[in-house]
Design a protein around this nucleic acid. Structure first.
Length: 462
RNA sequence: GGUGGGUUGGCCGAGAGGCGAGGCAACGGACUGCAAAUCCGUGUACACGGGUUCAAAUCCCGUACCCACCUCCA
């Protein structure tokens, strides 16, 4: 059975056929590091992390490039408003993003290039485009360089739009554009409003890169002129990905074979954005939820499905996850085993994580049934661990071991205290003094600790 | 105006012509001193109106409503 994935360009699920046998090259448009990451931002990170893990599981040698955009209008404006250097803001938010990815067990890519580190590659690409008559330096002396969309007949092919049907942005400054739909490859330095640190030398004067060119340049540098899969959020299809493809192909690079786009996470029916406040930033959510719970929640929906975020749904996901964890807690330890065929089929079908999780629950239920019957559930434990592992949800994964020493010490301390009380309760139960036994249980419960009686004695959980 | 997507049970969320994915909640049962945990059982869901078909949530036509993108966006 082969891996199949939905390709936005062809609008159909297609067999994955890599350019080079046994290898897979992935490029994901990462974030513009201008504010704290929120739940919506990390979705593509988690989705592509699952893709990366699945391709590796299938035996592919994966090269995964996920960029960071560390210079753009917003960063400049925001940093100026805060009275600090733009690079300081971008760097801080980049570190914040790394923490969010770590908390969700999003494995690092092969490399995470930043736009500002690849100015020469972009200049090179722009030069090539000018030489091929697909780009031009603005005649108004602004130092801007634009891509000439009229010079590229297949412009619009990715999103199936004809140039004539596109609305030109009403608020777009026409500047030196030949056509209002031409987009900036290079933005000339505006001395009066932009810091000199945000301007790099180029054949067209000092300036900074347009948004789209960085991805074409970096994908080209690390993955070559042609690579397998390019991904990002649906909003990036146009203009970002359309432009990336146009400028890359116009420069003679075939570019991506498959395009993957994840759907939105909205709140109150709206796109998440800074205007909705900070309650949904990753640091805020992680105050009340574990990273593994958020990751599980994100994987319960298919990556191409729109998700209406709610804390109620996140709570439900967390409860469901705890059932899986509880099974592993009480079942005998086992090594990670093989994946059930149904799980593999679900994942091979365009990363069908919801169907895959259904298989996971089937294994948990059957394992619990065997445990209740006093039979050997080891094979089911092995299967469950294998499935969790490939989804990045393995409980022993070091990513979940946050807090470190203090947490462990605290757990040990609580365990000692609760153990004493449980001993008293066990004695009371042995004496049939159930009133006293229940009083002890209530006392422990008041502290937020649940007691559960098992054949081998009582156990506690927070 | 152009392009793409959506509407599934109390809730979340899969599926894409024929056995009711799965989860959460609820109810009944088993187990338990009582619980908890666990297991077993319980639901006649597919926006609306037509059509095709032996068979439609799934295909076709139409209608309604919602959303995204159209050069800042995960």
């Amino acid at each position: 059975m082969t891996f199949r994935l939905y390709d936005t360009a062809t609008r159909e699920v297609r067999d994955f056929a890599p350019l080079e046998e046994g290898k897979a090259g992935l490029y994901l448009c990462g974030l513009t590091v201008q504010s704290e990451p929120h739940v919506g931002h990390v979705r593509s990170g988690v989705n592509f992390d699952v893709l990366q893990r699945w391709l590796r599981h299938l035996g592919y040698d994966v090269t995964f490039i996920r960029n960071v955009t560390d210079i753009d209008d917003k960063i400049l404006t925001k940093a100026a408003g805060q009275g600090r250097p733009w690079y300081n803001l971008a760097y801080e938010m980049h570190r914040e993003l790394d923490r969010a990815y770590d908390a969700l067990n999003v494995a690092p890519p092969t490399y995470e290039p930043a736009a500002t580190g690849h100015i020469p590659e972009m200049v090179e690409l722009i030069t090539e485009l000018i030489a091929r008559d697909h780009a031009y330096a603005a005649a108004d002396g602004s130092g801007d360089v634009y891509f000439d969309v009229q010079s590229w007949p297949s412009y619009g092919e990715l999103t199936r739009q004809g140039i004539d049907d596109m609305e030109a942005a009403e608020d777009a400054d026409p500047r030196g554009k030949r056509d209002p739909r031409d987009f900036a490859l290079w933005k000339g330095w505006k001395k009066e409003s932009e810091p000199e640190t945000a301007a790099w030398p180029s054949p067209w004067g000092r300036g900074r890169p347009g948004w789209h060119i960085e991805c074409s340049a970096m994908a080209g540098k690390y993955l070559g002129p042609a690579f397998d899969i390019h991904g990002g959020g649906v909003d990036l299809r146009f203009p970002h990905h359309e432009n990336e493809q146009a400028q890359s192909r116009a420069a003679g690079r075939p570019f991506a074979s498959y395009w993957m786009h994840n759907a939105w996470i909205t709140t109150a029916g709206e796109k998440m954005s800074k205007s909705l406040g900070n309650s949904l930033t990753i640091p805020a959510v992680l105050k009340n939820y574990r990273g593994i719970e958020l990751r599980f929640y994100l994987l319960m929906a298919h990556y191409r499905s729109h998700v209406e975020f709610s804390f109620e749904a996140l709570d439900e996901a967390a409860v469901g996850l705890r059932r899986i964890e509880h099974f592993l807690d009480r079942a005998p330890a086992a090594e990670t085993g093989d994946l059930p065929a149904d799980f593999v089929a679900a994942m091979n079908d365009d990363l069908g994580t919801p169907a895959a999780i259904a298989v996971l629950y089937d294994a948990v239920r059957e394992g619990n049934r065997l445990l209740a019957a006093g039979e050997d559930a080891t094979p089911h434990v092995a299967r469950v661990l294998a499935m969790l592992d490939v989804l990045g949800l393995h409980p022993d994964d070091s990513a979940w071991a946050t807090g470190g020493g203090d947490d462990a010490k605290l757990t040990a301390a609580v365990d000692a205290l609760v153990a004493g009380l449980l001993e008293q309760r066990a004695q009371a139960r042995a004496d049939k003094d159930f009133a006293r036994a229940d009083a002890i249980r209530d006392q422990i419960k008041t502290a937020g600790i649940e007691i559960e009686d098992t054949p081998s004695g009582a156990r506690w959980t927070l």
